[in-house]
């Protein structure tokens, strides 16, 4: 089965003030199949969001290509780009910012169809059903809804154009703990029903481990480790992944304070560097790490960019 989306060698950089160049994404490849959740994790500024924008063809890559259902999409053909944008919908962290305060729920959910002058196969009432909202909510305004309800409206709106891929950018980070689980469960149900592919961007590895099929760990624009979620979480190979996992609160009282120390901040993405981007924070770094950029290596089902991982 061909994947819904395949990214091949994507790269993106920006010229910034002072003549420096910021490398946001550097040679990233990944594929996501229908019904699959691919989670990107990493610290702020690692390039997760730029990568998602390139997948949705909202940002043109400097290099590399994007394929949908096995077909390479040309950046030049506007109709093709537009189709990709329709097939990709976003759900962001803060639903209050994603909804117009002047539109009712019904207007918000039907807006994508109105803009595309299409009639969807599903009515607004169906879409609200899908996300577990009562139809009577259609006449309400966002301010009359709770955070969890607003995020459901955003999800219903995202489904209106019957997308193939949802980009979920920290979809539950702003919600109350007791509501987060509800929204995550809802997303899992919708995925099963509609065969949606999810690109999940999240920093919370505990959340990620409970919903993702595959995990890609990003560091300064590169995926440094990628593989089935279970492998990455239980036997992390890259020192950075190990450090991220060590940072997750143990949640077992008494186990505190005995975890490896996390050191430093990420290096600046504007710095020119040879070698491994993580070497400056890595406890295992040797001379080769400073001199030679580690190539992508396959270790069983997992791919790692590290000279020393085994």
């Amino acid at each position: 089965m061909s994947p819904v989306i395949a990214l091949e060698g994507l790269a993106k950089g920006y010229d910034i003030a002072g003549g420096a160049r910021l490398t946001a994404v550097d040679d990233v490849s990944l594929t996501i199949a229908a019904g699959e959740t691919y989670a990107l994790v990493g610290e702020s500024g690692c390039g997760k969001s730029t990568l998602a924008r390139m997948a949705a063809m909202l940002t043109a890559p400097d290099a590399g290509q994007v394929s949908w259902s096995g077909q390479t999409v040309s950046q030049q053909r506007r109709s093709a780009v537009r189709a990709v944008r329709d097939h990709t919908q976003f759900v962001f962290q803060d639903p209050a910012a994603a909804l117009s305060p002047r539109l009712t729920v019904e207007e918000a959910v039907s807006e994508p169809l109105r803009i595309r002058r299409r009639t969807g196969s599903r009515s607004v009432a169906d879409l609200l059903d899908d996300v577990g909202l009562d139809r009577s909510m259609g006449r309400r305004y966002p301010r009359e809804l709770s955070g969890g309800q607003r995020q459901r409206v955003v999800i219903a709106r995202a489904l209106a154009l019957e997308p193939k891929l949802l980009v979920l950018d920290e979809p539950v980070a702003s919600l109350d703990v007791s509501v987060q689980a509800q929204v995550l469960n809802l997303l899992a149900d919708l995925q099963a029903e509609h065969g949606l592919a999810y690109l999940l961007i999240a920093h919370d590895l505990a959340v990620v481990s409970s919903v993702a099929d595959r995990i890609g760990v990003m560091y300064l624009g590169q995926i440094v480790e990628e593989g089935p979620a279970g492998d990455v979480v239980t036997t992390p190979r890259h020192p950075y992944t190990q450090m991220l996992i060590a940072s997750v609160p143990a949640f077992v009282p008494g186990e505190r304070g005995e975890r490896p120390r996390v050191v430093g901040d990420p290096a600046s993405p504007t710095e020119r560097r040879t070698g491994c981007a993580f070497a400056t924070r890595c406890a295992f770094a040797t001379q080769v790490c400073l001199d030679v950029a580690p190539p992508r290596r396959e270790l069983g089902d997992v791919a790692v960019r590290c000279h020393h991982a085994s």
């Binding site: 689980a181 995550l184 949640f251």
Partner: peptide, 24 residues
């Protein structure tokens, strides 16, 4: 109990979380 059940923990495998009904 509900708060503890709805908090995802780091572990292998996709799973349904113990969601509470309603909201605070």
């Amino acid at each position: 109990r509900g708060l503890l059940a709805s908090r995802p923990v780091l572990a292998a495998g996709r799973r349904r979380l113990g969601a509470m009904v309603g909201r605070p």
